[in-house]
Design a protein around this nucleic acid. Structure first.
Lengths: 196, 196
DNA sequence: ACATAATGCTAACAGTCATTTGCTCAATTT
DNA sequence: AAATTGAGCAAATGACTGTTAGCATTATGT
């Protein structure tokens, strides 16, 4: 009778989802079984269903909660009056800090969203498309204003986003160099590459 | 009794592996079943085993055949007498062309290698580590020779590799802009970002 | 035309999968 | 003290997993 410990801020459901995020990252959504998850939570598989509706629901919560963070950030950014190149830098820094502070969830959203099923799958697909387009719009604005090289904006977006999402291999690097220095290196390379 | 068609260059095994690469990319290794694969090949699941030893073997072949391409390229490159920044550009262009011409295999190696099992898993891990280190060495040489900005080389490697491996979202982009133009845009952004 | 090898099929295997059911026990509320 | 709720468990469900065995069919080489 091992009870899931729940402190004030984290409900039992939160504990399950957080452990799931870890496993989904390590082994992938499909390769992670509910028995697996249950064992890491310290409980029998059946007991998980007192707290969550299904395995799919766990993935949904991870993906959409994380996606919202990025959407909120870019919405706020669009309303600001920074320069375009400055906005790009802010996006980069936000991505890196999210990756450093919410590694598992961001990683899972990024690599496992394909396993969502259909109302959610389409929703996520269109959110991703929209997010990329909004960044592209910022870059195109920067090109028009002469702040940014005359490059293909969607290509620039892809480089930015994928460069950042590779922090998987970091966590070691982050220990080697600090996380702020990592941020500065990335910003230097990418922002300088974009600047005119 | 549907036979797998095999022309002169492609054995039946090749056909199976190529269809598998497609499915592994679309749904992931774990989420792809042998019955799934069989259906796409046009055959019953059991019949696959006349040509392959196991599901795991398919992944191994995809991963190591693809990894070899990259290893061979960088070995050849190291022996050449190009400038460092030129070597970096060559690596970038090679990655992009591999991604464009052998999309499924490269993608699968990149995202699904974690599902290899142990003699192969360790082998792949060390190949990946070594590959990154060899690129880092090239960049460090460039820094020493004053061709490249004084940045953290491993960070630069990560940016390069991950930026390129995100061509998943391309295939559309590649149709929009051409594949050479894509290459040039990437090279411009990344190489200029690295240059001193 | 005939032997042999290649390739296919059906049926079955022993596991594992996510999930449901029906139950118990402890904590909390009334 | 009694009732209600939260949270766990064991057992079972039916569907699906990779893989093997045994047999049938087709293609190939002589």
């Amino acid at each position: 009778m091992a009870k899931i410990k729940s402190n004030k801020t984290n409900t039992r459901k939160d504990v399950i989802i957080s452990k799931a995020a870890r496993l989904f990252r390590e082994k992938g959504y499909s390769a992670t079984s509910m028995r697996d998850l249950a064992e890491h939570v310290g409980v029998e598989a059946a007991s998980l269903y007192n707290h969550i509706k299904s395995k799919a629901e766990i993935l949904q919560e991870i993906c959409f909660k994380t996606a919202n963070q990025f959407m909120n950030h870019i919405t706020e950014l669009e309303l600001s009056d920074r320069s375009s190149i400055n906005k790009v830098e802010s996006i980069l820094r936000f991505h890196i800090s999210q990756m450093v502070n919410h590694y598992e969830e961001v990683y899972v959203m990024d690599r496992e969203w394909k396993h969502l099923t259909d109302p959610y799958l389409s929703n996520m697909q269109s959110q991703r498309r929209s997010y990329r387009q909004r960044i592209a719009a910022i870059i195109e604005e920067g090109i028009r204003k002469g702040e940014i090289k005359d490059i293909d904006a969607p290509t620039a977006v892809l480089i930015m986003l994928h460069a950042v999402s590779g922090i998987e291999s970091w966590h070691r690097s982050v220990k080697r160099i600090g996380s702020e220095m990592l941020e500065d290196n990335m910003v230097m390379i990418l922002v300088e590459g974009l600047k005119k």
